[in-house]
Nucleic acid binder design. Structure first.
Length: 538
DNA sequence: GTTCTAGAAC
DNA sequence: GTTCTAGAAC
């Protein structure tokens, strides 16, 4: 049936095979871009073309246009490309992200954010550098370039970003890309990022500070699980290490000549020491059997004995909140999903997933809890953490399915503080908000603190026993501001035509949710089973 | 949750 | 004249 064929596509491996990759190197002169390219091309069996601006003009430095032309022809021939130029700011990268022939191609960034000191000393030492950047001038050039650097972000159009801060990181990244054949690829996401992009100068003496996203000491292997993040089944003490809290993170001064006074070796020792403590503290958190099982929609649902007969009983009673009949629709679907095959796209013991009847974006589905007594977010207490985690995991899975179809989508997962429909439901919604159904109050319900991100809800429930609610009606009548550039718009049609073209990056706080959400994906691999037997596709 | 529609805003 | 909002009905 329809649902099964959709699910088989989830793995999507077949389509990925032979798909070229565009790898955009990001790094100052002397950061090791060319070495990286040479290594990958020597070791990997995938056909690569190195697009090097320093040599593209008959062995001499050439123009960006030449790089773009070579990139396009190489892609047309099905070859993967390595863009070997500095690409330090967003604008300089954008043409390579939006190459003519890069439709359906994975765009990766490798950020070689090595100490300025190292880049400069390498540049100075070069005698035969291809780009002819040598001698004392190198220091000034590298320093000036680094002042303007902007860390690549997923929303520029990258499907994967790998950050390297030292030579070990670079080696791991080279090995990873070196191991690529035409048949395999690397998963998307943001790997190894340290929050060093801050414009704020942090004093060297107090560089250990707490920041929001979890930071990693070394670059990640793609399949490695971050041990500092608890899984859905973690309990007790481990609850104290949810997502990002309590993880010390290095805040470096932004790159400047001050770096030359900075003892990077000493600093790395401290980081390793601090984080080793954290890692061993949270060992044993990795048992994360999601217990998310999918039942065939045509059968098996009868097994849900605990819900049998419930509907008949409850419909004769008045429900505790004065929900109108229309507001009970989700509740009815959660209790009798089989009767609503037209909207329901997945049924398990714990949740029902359905397409929003009036989607407010290109992709908008609801993950509805099936348990009784969880009408809304305000009903949620600590004992509901497992269901929150299951809902998040299932929501994430559907976001991934949609990303397979359209990798430019950006998803947010979250709850309304005060939903109109009864029965706890998680919104999985793409951030384009391209929908004829979108009205002012909808916009504000998804773009104000009325919308509570699933990651935050889980953290708050785990720490405080309940989620924060921002259910003030004033949020619904707020002015309409773009979710990217924050510009106000007088009405919905004007807002919609603006958001369709707005190219501004998402604000940091929002992007962090998106990144945390997607990072969580790599930490909660879900296996779907039928009848206890694992399937290769579903 | 949407639809309908009067009347405000442009 | 047309677009858009907002409140009541469903």
């Amino acid at each position: 049936m329809e649902i099964d064929s959709e699910m088989i596509n989830f793995t999507g491996e077949e389509e990925d095979k032979k798909k070229p990759i565009v790898v955009i190197l990001v790094g100052a002169p002397g950061s090791g871009k060319s070495t990286f390219c040479d290594h990958v091309m020597r070791v990997s069996t995938r056909p690569w073309v190195r697009v090097c601006q320093d040599t593209i003009g008959n062995g001499k430095a050439g123009k960006k246009a030449q790089c773009l032309a070579l990139s396009n022809t190489s892609l047309k021939e099905g070859k993967s490309i390595l863009i070997d130029r500095c690409n330090l700011d967003k604008e300089k990268r954008s043409d390579f992200i939006n190459l003519k022939n890069c439709h359906q191609v994975d765009i990766h960034a490798i950020v070689l954010d090595l100490p300025a000191k190292l880049c400069i000393s390498r540049s100075i030492k070069r005698t035969e550098h291809e780009g002819n950047l040598q001698g004392g001038k190198a220091a000034a050039v590298v320093n000036r370039m680094l002042q303007k650097k902007e860390s690549p972000k997923i929303n520029e159009g990258f499907s994967r970003i790998t950050f390297c801060y030292n030579e070990n990181d670079v080696q791991s990244a080279m090995d990873m890309y070196g191991s690529l054949s035409s048949e395999n690829t690397l998963p998307g996401g943001c790997f190894g990022e340290k929050k060093t992009d801050s414009k704020v100068q942090v004093g060297i003496m107090k560089f250990l500070k707490r920041v929001d996203p979890p930071s990693k000491v070394t670059s990640d292997k793609t399949d490695k699980i971050d041990k500092s993040t608890p899984g859905p089944s973690s309990e007790g003490e481990e609850e104290k290490v949810p997502f990002e809290s309590g993880i010390p993170t290095l805040g470096f001064p932004s790159i400047s000549t001050a770096d030359f006074q900075f003892n990077i070796e000493k600093a790395s020792e401290i980081i390793v020491e601090k984080n080793q403590g954290k890692l061993s503290d949270s060992n044993g958190v990795l048992d994360r059997d999601q217990k998310v099982r999918r039942e065939d929609v045509d059968g098996g649902i009868e097994k849900n004995k605990r819900f049998k007969g419930f509907m008949e009983e409850s419909e004769s009673k008045t429900v505790k909140k004065d929900y109108g009949m229309w507001a009970q629709a989700l509740y009815r679907i959660a209790m009798h999903p089989k009767k609503h095959g037209n909207v329901v796209i997945e049924i398990s013991d714990d949740v029902v997933v359905l397409n929003e009847t009036y989607p407010k974006a290109q992709k908008h589905v609801l993950v509805v809890a099936r348990a009784e007594g969880v009408d809304r977010l305000s009903d949620i207490r600590k004992e509901h953490l497992p269901i929150l985690r299951t809902m998040h995991a299932v929501g994430l899975k559907w976001a991934e399915i949609f990303l397979k179809e359209n990798e430019s989508l950006i998803f947010r997962l979250g709850y309304h503080s005060e939903p109109t429909m009864r029965q706890l439901h998680l919104h999985v919604i793409s951030q384009d908000f391209d929908s004829k159904y979108l009205k002012k109050r909808h916009w504000n319900s998804f773009n104000s603190s009325f919308f509570r991100d699933s990651v935050d809800v889980m953290q708050e429930v785990s720490e405080d026993g309940k989620a924060k609610l921002n259910d003030d009606e004033k949020f619904m009548s707020r002015e309409l501001r773009c979710n990217r550039c924050r510009r106000p718009h007088p009405n919905i049609p004007r807002l919609r035509s603006h958001i369709a073209i707005c190219k501004s990056p998402f604000p940091d706080h929002l992007l962090q949710k998106v990144l945390r959400t997607s990072l969580a994906n790599y930490e909660f691999p879900i296996r779907y089973r039928t009848g206890g037997e694992q399937q290769t596709s579903y």
